[in-house]
Amino acid sequence: MKGALGRFFLRRLALSLLTLWLLSIVVFLGCQVLPGDPARAILGPLADPRAVAALNQQLGSNRPPVEIYLSWIGGLLTGDMGQSYAYRAPVAPFIGHALVNSLKLAAMVFAIVVPIGIGAGVLAALRAGRPLDRMISVAGLSLTVIPEFVSSIALILVFAVLLRWLPLSASWPAGSGPLVQIQHLILPALPLVIVLFGYIARMTRAGMVEALSADYTRTAVLKGLPWPTVLGRHVLRNALLPTITVIAAQMGYALGGLVVVETLFRYQGIGSLVLGAARAKDFAMLQAGILTVGAFFIATTLVADLLTTLLDPRLRTGGRR
């Protein structure tokens, strides 16, 4: 039993590492090979060929691609992410700083969306087929498809311009305490809450409906347990399994949505860092940023997979058969 579980973990881990390695090649191709001549891309079509050659020499991009790739990967393994062309400084501290900021924003998003989404899903399942259920599912489905920049504009208009309840910028004054930081993060978090709400509510509802109609629930009711006990001990415990997986899987998505939100609210996270690097054609920064997002995404998917297996005994023994 233990051995099967361990083998399963190792297999999933190995697959994730393989995906990460392939991803590094894709990112490398996108940042170093596709543009053809990085220095030409940076300096523009009118630049002097000697300047282009000199910059390529300085960037090291006149070496064969395989050599560039190997030195990049070698650097990554020792914590050196290369030199940013735009800032003329090492990339790694920028990435670290931006990742911390993005994780703060993501934490805010999940602190809001998880209770609301699960609450709405449970409510919808308990009223399955009734108007409240229809309302929650239609709201969830419609909100999920609204692009973050669209809902951001609506939220800014209502809460920052009309009501003036929340600050417009996500960046807090230097040295602010945690409370002020949280206050600044609410508005940027809401667009992502809106996108993620529908998924979480839908998964919770589906899990709840299944658990409510399951034999063990009927048994619990028939043996005379009070309804709240049935709900808490039997229904919820089983119903929330798939939801946990969805939440973990959505973490990665949230990082992608951050590109738009961070740009709109002028917040210095990994998303706006990637976009800034893309605009400045700062390829070293761009490839480090994208690989970081990808690694995070792969890690959350791995955690989601492992959680599902750990939490669901049926899947756990399934590996042995």
């Binding site: 995906t19 996108g30 590109v259 994208i290």
Partner: peptide, 23 residues
């Protein structure tokens, strides 16, 4: 399947951004 998994391991908007910057 493995190659597609790699494509799906990045948020869509970031993949699009990566290629659009390059091209």
């Amino acid at each position: 399947g493995r190659l597609l998994e790699v494509m799906l391991s990045l948020p869509l908007i970031i993949v699009a951004l990566l290629v659009l910057v390059a091209l």
